[in-house]
Write a protein that binds this DNA or RNA. Structure first.
Length: 191
DNA sequence: TTTCCGATGTACT
DNA sequence: GTACATCGGAAAA
């Protein structure tokens, strides 16, 4: 929870440590990825492509790097704030259809909607603060959508194919590839 | 509709 | 210098 903004996690990707060539932790600790080597329950935020932030939840014990990239949230509360933050990050208004379910679709958009940047790196998500991760009792899907992770370079070798991307089937807020296309408008003549 | 490509800062070779 | 856990507008079809 942050600034009145609330969203349900509906899509993630898993990143490991020494065993995962796609992980920032693969080559050992640096100033940038230090949070990944710390205790679990903290937020690892990094900056990429010169303009986007991505947020992860560290989920392995100290010195055993492993994190889950937050790829999409279903907005629940604070929609207006999310839209305003997205627009501010971009420097101009959002397109109308970007509002609502697409506000937190994709890791970069998710961070923009919540105003997450490097200053949030290391935030303890289990303590009461401006940003929290809570279990509201919603059951995870029995069989999640899964597939290869997005945007990895071929230099990652076989890891490119590992199905470490997971999502809630049918959610209207999923990102590229998993996104449910808008309802088909079937023109019916007559009737 | 799908594909392509530019923007842009930081980490790393 | 090059690559990058991305995004969205423009071009192509």
């Amino acid at each position: 929870m942050h600034g009145g903004r609330v969203g349900r996690i509906v899509e993630v990707e898993a990143y490991g440590g020494e065993i995962d060539p796609a992980s920032h932790a693969f080559n050992g600790p640096t100033a940038r990825n230090a949070t990944m080597f710390g205790p679990p329950g903290r937020l690892y935020v990094y900056f990429t492509y010169g303009m986007h932030h991505c947020a992860n939840v560290v989920c392995r014990p100290t010195n055993e790097p492993g994190a889950v990239l937050l790829r999409a949230l279903e907005p629940l509360r604070g929609i207006e704030e999310m839209a305003a933050a997205r627009a501010a990050a971009r420097g101009r208004p959002l397109a109308r259809r970007e509002a609502d379910t697409r506000l937190c679709r994709g890791p970069g958009n998710l961070c923009a909607a919540f105003g997450l940047d490097r200053s949030f790196d290391g935030t303890d998500l289990l303590e009461i603060g401006v940003l929290r991760l809570i279990d509201d009792g919603t059951s995870p899907p029995e069989v999640p959508l899964s597939g290869p992770r997005v945007g990895l370079s071929t230099a990652c070798g076989e890891a490119v194919h590992w199905p470490w991307r997971f999502a809630v089937p049918g959610s209207s807020s999923l990102s590229r590839g998993f996104a449910t296309p808008p309802p088909v408008r079937t023109p019916r003549c007559g009737r």
